[in-house]
């Protein structure tokens, strides 16, 4: 069943269709949101919120054939809102290991889910401005075309190329610049 067909069923209140859709998309959505906000716990909450909004908007859904773009727009908007709400400045890297433990008290899955050492490229990715990071994630991990990224982020194709070009140049510099030192 296509995403559009599932959306039609969800609009009629079909929870089974919603479950299929969630299970089809939860992993890419979670990965995207996690890489946007840098926290697994927060990404879990945000992923749930993404799909609740998908369900809540099912009756108004009219983007036939462009479900993924619509889905990742919701995910991107929620992630960026969350970043703004936490007053994370563009150039300040987010520290998930601090944030996730802020609540105090060990979570039962603390040992299993402990943040592993971030790779250098991952750390550099986290330092990018949110919109640049969003474009990189959609391109490199979701493998969207520039056109689809443009539709997802509601910007022009030229603006997508510009975001990607600046982001990747910064990442290249980090990768080669720190290569010998680290």
């Amino acid at each position: 069943m296509t995403d559009d067909e599932l959306m039609e069923r969800i609009a009629r209140g079909d929870a089974g269709a919603a479950r299929i859709l969630v299970e089809r998309w939860e992993r890419p959505v979670f990965a995207f949101v996690e890489r946007m906000v840098g926290s697994r716990e927060e990404a879990q909450d945000l992923s749930q919120e993404v799909f609740l909004r998908v369900c809540a908007s099912a009756r108004r859904y009219d983007r036939k054939g462009r479900f993924r773009s619509w889905l990742f727009r919701i995910a991107g908007n929620l992630a960026r809102t969350s970043l703004r709400r936490r007053k994370i400045l563009r150039w300040v890297p987010f520290r998930p290991e601090i944030h996730d433990r802020k609540g105090g008290g060990a979570r039962p899955d603390d040992g299993v889910e402990r943040e592993e050492e971030r790779s250098r490229v991952r750390a550099a990715l986290e330092r990018l401005p949110a919109r640049q990071r969003q474009a990189v994630l959609l391109r490199r991990f979701e493998e969207m075309s520039y056109r689809e990224i443009a539709s997802t982020m509601k910007i022009s194709v030229a603006a997508v190329e510009s975001l990607l070009q600046r982001a990747m140049k910064a990442l290249r510099a980090e990768l080669s610049g720190n290569g010998e030192a680290g």
Partner: peptide
């Protein structure tokens, strides 16, 4: 990164 729990 993988979800901590099934989102559904």
């Amino acid at each position: 990164p993988e979800p901590l729990r099934p989102v559904w």
